[in-house]
Structure formats: C-alpha cells, structure tokens
Computed example of a mutant assay.
Amino acid sequence: MVNLTRQLGIEVPILQAPMAGAQGADLALAVSAAGGLGALPCAMLTPDTMAEALHRIRAESSRPVNVNFFCHEPPVHDARRLERWHRALTPYYAEFGLDIDNVPTGTGRRPFDHETCDALEPFRPEVVSFHFGLPEPALLERVKAWGATVLSSATTVEEARWLEAHGADAVIAQGLEAGGHRGMFLTDDVTTQLGTFALLPQVVAAVSVPVIAAGGIADARGVAAAFKLGAEAVQAGTAFLCCPDAAISALHRQALQSEAARHTALTNLYTGRPARGIVTRLMRELGPLGDVAPPFPLATAAIAPLRSAAEAAGSSDFSPLWAGQNASTCREVAAAEVVRSLAAGVS
C-alpha cells in the first residue's frame, strides 16, 4: 500500500477539514504552506467563484490542495412542510420586525455536477473530496482522469465499504464528535452514528484503502491515539476555526473560546440535515433535531434573515455555530502552529 502522506504529496499527515461558510482560500493556503493538506470548500461557491479562489491558490502556492464538494440529492419541493417551517419561525421574525412572507428563495448549496466539473478540470486539483457519498460514476471518472486522489466521508462501516466499492481512494472515518454536517448518506438514522475511536478501528478492519480519522481530534494526544488505531492521517476542523485565516464571525470566535463550546449538539434546524454546533437559543426552543425543518438544504433560506438581524444586534441566537465536541485548543494562533501541534502526535 502506498503511504498516504506520500500519495497526497504533503509533509505531515494532517488534513484541514473543508468548512463551507467558515473559510476560504486563506486557510487552505496557510495549512498547505505548513506542510499539511489545506482544503477549499466549494459547496457554497458558484463555478465562477470557485475558479477565482483556485486561480489565487495556484498563483500563490505549488503545494497540493483538497477541493471539496457535496453530493446530496436536490430535495423535492413540499409546500406544506415549508409552510410549517415558516410558521415555526414566525414569532422570531416578528421579534425582529421581519416579514415571513418575504423569505428569499434559493438553497445556497449545490451538489457536484458537470458544470462545476467543467470549471474545476483546468486546475486539476491533486485531491478532490466529497461529503454525502460520491458523485455519479461519469463525474467520478472525470475527476480520476486527471490523476486526483478521491476522498469521501464515512460515518458507518457500511458507508466505508460502499465508498471503497464505488471508487474512493481513501476513506475519512467521521466520528460523531465532528463539527459541521454529518457525512451520512446510506441512512438518516442518527442512532447509527459512532464516536471516532469506536468507528475508526472498525473501518480500518473493513476496508483496504487508507483511512483518515476525523472528529474530536484537537491535539497531539488525539492524533497519536488515531494512529495507534490504524489511521494513516488525521483531519481536523474545529482546531483551525479561530485562526486568523478562518472566515468566521466575531460572535462565532467568541463562542468557540467560551464555556458555551462545551455544549454542542446535532441539529437540522439550520440547513435541514444533521450538523454539530454549539447549542443556541433556536436549538433550545425548537429542539435541535426534528421534522419541523424542511429537507437539506431548504431550511437555510428562512434562517438567513434571522441570523443577519440577530448578529447585527450582537446576538448569535440564530447563527449556526458549527463546532466539534472538543474546542479546547481552538485559539487565535497561526494555522501553521495548529499543524505543528497536531503533527507532534504522528508516530
């Protein structure tokens, strides 16, 4: 088996988790410059804005980059479910003097498609990763044709086996502790989700491709534990969120460095799909998980005006404060320092 660090063309087996809406090219460049694998999340970018970011990355660095996409199925419009969602949010809209009847349309997140692949191909990124499974075979063949290494997230052993069988070159074992969206795609049942150090050895035993550990790993000790359980690399996200090169709000930074970060939960209120974040007023009052929100990514449109109004008033009550269960090392330090501290655990 080819060593994964060598295969990815990096110096240390530390991957920065792609975090849509929380970072862009700045963080990807900083992590890659430190010898890890920086990532550019593209789920919320248009083909043009993605190309703009990649032009900059290629102009400023010769190091490998991981370009990340979602592979969700666009939802079927359900007027009754959308009406129920708007009804649940009406009191909050009234609180800020907003009109629920003027909720903007649009989803803000697009799955990987041929138009996106057309814009991506000229850059021939060394690594392309996916969340929520893999794209259709024709798209995956296009990506592999330019020599890209393909990664994707698995939250169960069954998903890991599926990814290997369908062309993934390495599997990211995403434990329940991870911040942001669960990568689950073969089931909607959150009771199937395992913690990182329960999931990791089972995935290692189940597949023959390299396995990358993700979820709750924030320091050298966590990295060392992941390697002892068979990981060939570690992916970290929350540990990078307070770096100067991340693009989160001041409110999000404040929450991550407060006691509030000790209480996270899975919620589907912000996007329509389970994702882990710091518990907010919205999550407490509506319940973090349930069927009130429309399917991913339709919940986002109605949350956006509330988030903007509340943040303008200095409140994160309606903001998705994505974070994993271990924000203990999330500090305002250079990304290179985070990479070095994690790499100290590599044996």
Rank of each mutant, 00 (worst) to 15 (best):
C243K: 05
C330E: 01
W146A: 03
A213M: 10
T156H: 06
A154V: 06
T49I: 10
V279R: 11
F240C: 05
S258D: 05
R80G: 11
D317G: 00
A220D: 12
A218D: 05
V338G: 09
F318G: 00
A301P: 11
P210F: 11
L306H: 07
A327G: 05
M44Q: 13
H55C: 11
G21C: 08
H263E: 13
S62N: 15
V67K: 10
R110I: 07
A233D: 00
D291E: 15
M184L: 12
E52D: 08
F70T: 08
H77T: 13
W162E: 12
A327E: 02
P201L: 02
P18H: 10
A261H: 01
L120K: 06
T90Q: 14
F123Q: 08
I14E: 10
S315A: 07
L37C: 05
D189F: 02
P274V: 04
L29K: 12
G179L: 08
G180Y: 11
N326E: 09
A160E: 02
I57C: 03
R87C: 13
G36T: 04
A22I: 02
D113Q: 04
A25G: 06
V234N: 00
Y270A: 04
P104W: 11
T116R: 14
E332F: 03
N68D: 14
R281G: 11
F70R: 03
L45D: 13
V171N: 02
C243P: 02
G97K: 07
T238W: 02
A313Q: 14
L98G: 05
S249I: 10
L37V: 06
W146H: 07
Y93L: 08
I217R: 09
R84I: 10
V150N: 09
E232A: 15
Q193D: 14
C330R: 01
E11P: 00
A17G: 12
T149A: 06
A309Q: 02
F130T: 03
L269K: 10
Q254W: 15
A94F: 01
E52Y: 14
